[in-house]
Design a protein around this nucleic acid. Structure first.
Lengths: 233, 233
DNA sequence: CCGGTGTACTTGACTGACAAGAACACTTGT
DNA sequence: ACAAGTGTTCTTGTCAGTCAAGTACACCGG
């Protein structure tokens, strides 16, 4: 039996496929994602579809009220600011530690090489190696808790990217170049320089995002949902 | 109908009660927590018990392999170091921001007053207001993502405390005094001083924990579980 | 035009059942 | 006697069908 690594159950497989669709922007934020539709689409029983949906809800990739269908959350400018701000905080910590050690993970180099090889491709294609670059830096700290927290942030970043799909945020070449400089600064032990560059790097992406998301000024309806869902843990 | 706030479903209610038991150390780390036992204990169907267990697994409060019963994870010294290290990183960011604003949340004062009113009570009774103190500081940033990440950490801290139950880690009076000084430093805008005090504050608690946990050198069986469960998100 | 009622849709939860995987004890062969 | 393979049992994974409960929306009446 050929078995895809990491997928142990049907629920996991469905959750993974839904996640993939979410990140590619193939799921509309308008129409609700009902248990029945998922159940039908993957030809599984409703409890199985329910479990997959609840998994994504617990990851923050879907929102749902009681007795209400799950929906793809509509991220607004405030969300983008919060996500990127928290990202910057976490990654700053990481960069300082890595700069003190003067080491960068090989995976970061590989991921950035992929970005360079991509040329000026679609904006969504850059997201995958880009997030792998940043994630590999966090993982280099070998802190399961920090990696877990960052993983949650990374998911929301991808959700953001999916929702502004089509609007090329930044040039592939610029991203690659800044990553390269970032690695050089870390290897040189220049913590302040690395953090400073990172904050410019993220702030620019954030401002682009806020500009696009703010353009469609959806009211802060999603805010209360986020807060209520926060009390669960 | 009288309805407990926040509890919307049976699954939530059971998950909350299991969490309470976990934090009070009433669940043994040895015997597995099977779906059947939970189902029987709360007189609900097995799918309901299953959902509650999976909720706690997704929060990291229980661990489970495929086709294996859920277990209370045995935290070792490495876990305690990771949890407290990540805590220190996150809270340092928060303190710097709060110091810049020179404001502290009222909830922090209230929580610390409770600690003082506690006298030299049981170590476990201090945990609740203590975590409320620290959590209120993070929540003051009004960042849903940061609060969510910290909430996960706080849960694991409580799990730690439950597992070293009986070993009074620190004096109630000392905790209260340091919290009070922390608030004063933040209000005075002394970011470096506040961070420095916080790190001593957490490092002391951490070392006590590591001492107790390292004393019973349980093998690193829980490590691989933690890592594998990390890839899910 | 506004307010209340009723209906359809969706989820929450249960019962009962079978399949599949894992751990453990047991048996068998050397 | 010991090692390896086998089988049983426990637990979870998944399914089907069903009823209850809640929400949203449309419809009707004042």
């Amino acid at each position: 039996m050929a078995r895809v690594e990491g997928v142990t159950s049907i629920v996991d497989a469905i959750a993974m496929d839904l996640r993939r669709q979410l990140f590619r922007g193939e799921l509309s934020t308008d129409e609700p994602l009902t248990e029945a539709s998922v159940s039908e689409q993957y030809e599984v029983a409703r409890p199985t579809a329910k479990a997959a949906i609840e998994k994504l809800v617990s990851e923050g990739l879907l929102v749902r009220g009681v007795h209400r269908s799950a929906r793809v959350p509509v991220l607004d400018a405030a969300d983008a600011r919060d996500i990127y701000g928290t990202r910057a905080d976490v990654e700053s910590i990481v960069l300082r530690r890595l700069a003190a050690r003067r080491t960068v993970p090989d995976e970061a180099r590989r991921a950035n090489a992929e970005i360079a090889a991509l040329g000026e491709a679609s904006a969504l294609d850059v997201v995958d190696p880009d997030m792998r670059f940043h994630t590999s830096l966090v993982d280099a700290m070998a802190s399961p808790r920090l990696s877990r927290a960052y993983s949650s942030l990374a998911s929301e970043v991808r959700l953001c990217m999916a929702q502004v799909q089509g609007n090329s945020l930044l040039s592939t070449a610029l991203i690659h170049a800044e990553h390269e400089r970032l690695l050089a600064l870390v290897e040189g032990g220049d913590a302040d320089g690395a953090v400073s560059l990172l904050e410019r790097h993220l702030a620019r992406a954030r401002e682009r995002l806020v500009g696009v998301l703010g353009g469609t000024p959806g009211p802060e309806a999603a805010w209360s949902d986020d807060v209520s869902q926060l009390g669960g843990a």
